[in-house]
Nucleic acid binder design. Structure first.
Length: 609
RNA sequence: GGCCCCGUAGUUCAAUGGAUAGAACAGCGGUUUCCUAAACCGUUAAUACAGGUUCGAUUCCUGUCGGGGCUACCA
């Protein structure tokens, strides 16, 4: 098998990619032109034609200087001569070279890998990549938008690991700044000493309540000032409570002990709340940074840049960078009162991340509303000479909106993460009970099952869409449990496990060895093996594109095809022993690919459902 | 105003410049003495508009029209 990485003992390249290599090689030998595999198009052959894979020959005729048909024949013959174990024959139809793969190829593949737990993973050691995701503010609880970020970031990190990168997952806690002062101020003024304990609330929700309170008071004051004749702009600027929040920020930056005490207390309430949610959804980090620990380094970098004349100071004392030469604007780096802004700490953090881990690539999973900010950040990092600034990459994703528009924490119009997780779980329970599928479970098992199904529905719903697309969430009707969903894939897995339970097969070792198949492979059997064989390529593509939706769609396709196979053919009750073993092996590999792939998307699979 | 992203069946999503644009949900019609019907099989239905490049365009370029974002001494 030519695609096998001998040294590394892993199946990390699918046949489709191997064919691209071989075609590139053919072009080099036949036409004396060097091309890469990316210059070759190989697709799975369309169902209405015969064959397994199709080489699109049109773009190769510029090298061969022959007609598409003649080129296709030459390349087809080259492939047959050079790898007769893989290719059985070919057909040329117009400019398409349809390749027929030997049945023995599929059988050997299946025999070799049906029980290989590393199948699909790239075992080489590639470069180091940092993935920053989640990065919450400590003034409000997590909402649906944060969930998209967490699921996306976690999954991208795991997919990168699976394709051989060394990954450091990181999270930046935005634990300081004017927004934090707002919730602190509201608590100090109006809470009368209330705590999450006295109110019986989760800490992050409790603090979020005071952030909303601040904005209520602020809005009221703005309204009053405008009634007294101020313009909206003046009113928004002069509202007393905002002045107080600014004063609080200054005191915080001056490390006023009284302020710090409140700050630490409130942040700890929030952390306890976040911890609970992170544990529930499975988010984890190798390193957590706190903005309060990085913003001073950021300030130093800004001062350094000022000395080196990369930045400039305006008469009021504020510090700016001029990016007009790069087609952007002037950007504020430090306020006139000396306090730092959002980007200040990001500069310090970029430096710190490099000092701590020295990763070649640094991926920031952040919403697309910050596209401009991230563009500026990368440019300024380069100007400052921060190492690997070129490796900064913004993985931008679309916002999750409601039919009524944008979610706004300030106004309390958000879909709360904890509430939504509870709802998903309750819906999973409702479906399961309606279908009467709760027999044979312990109470705790049922609880875990509902959680597992509910989360899969939610995670799949958010991950199946390409990151850059925005999602409009319709409460109560958006998330399904049937069709193109996480639970559908879970169900397929449970079905397979059930077949093995009934056949009394616990491990792959219980399956007898299958030397040869006397009976020909049926279409349903071959199509499924062919699809499963593509798993390594799918992981690779998801890693290259930093896009879990690639894997999500692939897994759905696997589940769909298995269900079709299962409906059409008896597995453990096959007519012949040979077919029984073959189909059990196909089932075993299907279960593995589903389990492994779902894990990369952050979803678990149940033995029964 | 400037810059960026997105426009595909009724709805939610696919389609590295390649063969007759593929799924799911909803709709309509079927399948359960047989390994889980959260399933399977069949069926109706779409590339916003106008140009251009190409042997070939949903994909690339230009313009128009729609939706969203950024352009803050907010984060």
């Amino acid at each position: 098998m030519a695609y096998f990485c001998d040294k590394l003992k892993c199946y990390c390249m699918s046949l489709q990619t191997e064919i691209k290599h071989l075609v590139a090689q053919a072009v080099e030998e036949l036409y004396d032109r060097t091309i890469g595999e990316e210059d070759v198009t190989v697709n799975q052959t369309k169902p209405e034609f015969r064959g397994d894979y199709t080489v699109v020959v049109f773009q190769l005729t510029r090298y061969s200087k022959l007609s598409p048909e003649a080129t296709a024949r030459q390349i087809g013959e080259y492939l047959l001569e050079n790898d007769e174990d893989t290719f059985e024959r070919f057909e040329v139809i117009k400019g398409f070279l349809n390749l027929f793969i030997r049945e023995s190829y599929w059988l050997e593949f299946l025999q070799e890998y049906y029980d290989d737990s590393t199948f699909g993973r790239h075992m080489t050691s590639r470069e180091k990549v940092m993935v920053e995701y989640s990065s919450p503010n400590t003034n409000k609880p997590l909402h649906l938008g944060h969930l998209r970020n967490n699921f996306l970031g976690w999954s991208v990190a795991e997919i990168l690991k699976a394709s051989g990168y060394r990954v450091v997952k990181t999270c930046v806690v935005n634990d300081r700044g004017i927004h934090i002062c707002k919730s602190m101020l509201a608590w100090m003024k109006y809470a009368q000493g209330a705590t999450p304990e006295t109110e019986g609330m989760k800490g992050d929700h409790f603090v979020g309540k005071w952030y909303v309170k601040f904005n209520e008071v602020y809005a009221q004051q703005v309204k009053e000032l405008m009634a007294a004749g101020k313009t909206q702009e003046e009113a928004e600027e002069q509202a007393p409570i905002l002045q107080e929040a600014r004063e609080l920020l200054k005191r915080w930056e001056a490390r006023d002990p009284e302020v710090w005490e409140v700050w630490e207390m409130m942040n700890n309430w929030v952390y306890a709340g976040f911890e609970e949610t992170y544990r529930r959804i499975g988010s984890d980090f190798d390193k957590i940074y706190y903005e309060s620990e990085t913003y001073l380094l950021g300030k130093k970098l800004v001062e350094k840049g000022l000395r080196k004349k990369i930045f400039f100071k305006k008469p009021d004392g504020s510090i700016w960078v001029n990016l007009t030469a790069e087609g952007l604007d002037e950007k504020l780096l430090l306020r006139s009162d000396g306090t730092s802004v959002y980007i200040t700490q990001d500069l310090g953090l970029a430096q710190l991340k490099y000092d701590d881990f020295g990763a070649e690539r640094s991926i920031y999973v952040i919403g697309d509303e910050q596209n401009y900010h991230m563009q500026v950040l990368k440019l300024v990092c380069k100007k400052l000479g921060i190492p690997q600034a070129d490796g900064i990459y913004h993985l931008s994703y679309g916002m999750v909106d409601l039919p009524s528009g944008k979610m706004k924490s300030r106004e309390g119009t958000v879909v709360d993460a904890d509430d939504l997780l509870d709802e998903m779980k309750a819906t999973a329970e409702k479906y399961t009970r309606e279908l009467g599928k709760i027999e044979g479970f312990q109470e705790q098992e049922l609880d875990a099952l509902f959680e597992m199904i509910g989360q899969a529905a939610l995670k799949y719903y958010l991950l199946r869409v390409s990151p850059q697309k925005r999602i409009v969430f319709h409460p109560g009707e958006s998330i399904d449990f049937q069709g193109h969903t996480g639970p559908f894939i879970q169900y397929t897995y449970a079905r397979i496990r059930s077949v093995f339970r009934k056949a009394r097969i616990r491990t792959a070792a219980d399956l007898p060895f299958l030397n040869k198949c006397k009976e020909a492979l049926l279409d349903e059997e071959k199509s499924l093996i062919r699809l499963l064989e593509q798993y390594p390529d799918q992981i690779q593509q998801a890693a290259d594109e930093l896009d879990p939706s690639v894997l999500a769609h692939y897994l759905f396709e696997v589940a769909r095809m298995y269900n079709s196979f299962y409906a059409e053919l008896p597995v453990a009750k096959a007519d012949s022993e040979e077919k029984k073993i073959l189909r059990l092996m196909i089932s075993w590999l299907t279960a593995h690919v589903i389990q492994s792939g779902m894990h990369l998307l952050g979803m678990q699979v149940p033995e029964k459902m």
